[in-house]
Design a protein around this nucleic acid. Sequence first.
DNA 1: TGACTTTTTATACGTACGTTCAGATAGTTT
DNA 2: AAACTATCTGAACGTACGTATAAAAAGTCA
Lengths: 225, 225
Amino acid sequence: MSQPPENAGNSRQTDGRLARGEATRDRVLDAAELCFAAHGFAAVTIRQIAREAGVTLGVIGFHGGTKEELFATVLARRTETLTAERLKRLDVLRARRAFSLRELVDAYLTPYLEIASRGDPQWRAYAQLIARIVSDDQFYPRVRELYDPTAREYMAEIRRLRPEASEEALATVLTLTVSSMLSIVASRARIAGLSEGSPVRQPLEYRTLLVDFCTGGIEAALAPS
Amino acid sequence: MSQPPENAGNSRQTDGRLARGEATRDRVLDAAELCFAAHGFAAVTIRQIAREAGVTLGVIGFHGGTKEELFATVLARRTETLTAERLKRLDVLRARRAFSLRELVDAYLTPYLEIASRGDPQWRAYAQLIARIVSDDQFYPRVRELYDPTAREYMAEIRRLRPEASEEALATVLTLTVSSMLSIVASRARIAGLSEGSPVRQPLEYRTLLVDFCTGGIEAALAPS
DNA sequence: TGACTTTTTATACGTACGTTCAGATAGTTT
DNA sequence: AAACTATCTGAACGTACGTATAAAAAGTCA
């Protein structure tokens, strides 16, 4: 990001310019979010984003910086919300005397499914964008800082439930669980195509089936052979 | 594809020009396969492919047609081999009196893992390319014709083992299984990152764990609630 | 050898890309 | 009102894109 003034320290509430600037900035980020989610980083052009946002070309640079910076900002913008929800649910479980593996898996998966099923198209786009970047090792450096800390928290709890499992097996089953979760959003067309005639469903409608699948999968994969 | 002569009918074995042309064509397709697998369709340029193949720009158009056509050719080129191996293993199972769900899942997953673990970098690139396009609904029209027929065959056998499962649930668990399989190739960096210190493994080394995960997942998800 | 086909080269075309910026505009403060 | 800052416009920069093609080269065959 380049020009936009800091304004952080004192934050004069009276300046309508900053308010307008922030509004425009949000329009730019929203448009970028929709475009990146729909087509992926490389396939999107700055001009598409400008058109989608209804602003001129220079505004994208002014509020979004370079294409890379814009992408990074869009990715980071909503992470905190998703992470907080996951950690909140984890805390609820931890506060109890005991909990099942299924409850743990459900706590991890459900916040994402809820985001992907919201009415707000921006949140849905964000869910799709996550599916794009998490399932592509090219973006792992970014995924590592954004989502791995929470993933490690959940790994630690699985470890407590299955102490005999190796660290590598834990990391693998968690990755498989995440991939399954993402495919509910990223492979809706294929699910519909393979079960012809069935209606297109909201991600949350797969909650039970997905949690069953992942829980059963983890149990089977971590069972002492 | 544009200019290359048909040559299909008579196939004059003596013409060294056609032999040379085919060799060049293979170099082009190999280079395209590596590039598309590494960076995805949109991020790759024709010039990159030409450089990788060691040919001039015009040769790509001559042997590969447009970028879209080149991509489609690369995708379709090795499909038959993968499909044949999957169907062969399915036939072996069908010839027996009975088989388990686990054996069915193993028959579907192992050919892909083997391709992804081969010494030949082209086959490994193809495996990665599959992971890219199958996990992106944008390419589903192509996936539908290339891989859905085989997937339906396997779905039919799962249906016979679990007659009470709904069509939609079958399609979903198969999609989740595929996503898990692909993530072994597409998310190697994350698996390694989440289990620090563990060595980078070949996809085939995850065979048991992956098959356990998917089999246990399908069983749990299709179990009568 | 000379007519013929296939392949390759080198270059060009038109378009679109990401980024930058001088200057106009709008809003705030003194 | 004047000075100042933040925002926005419109246009341009140089580069790289996908594609097409005329001409050269390589190889075949009568």
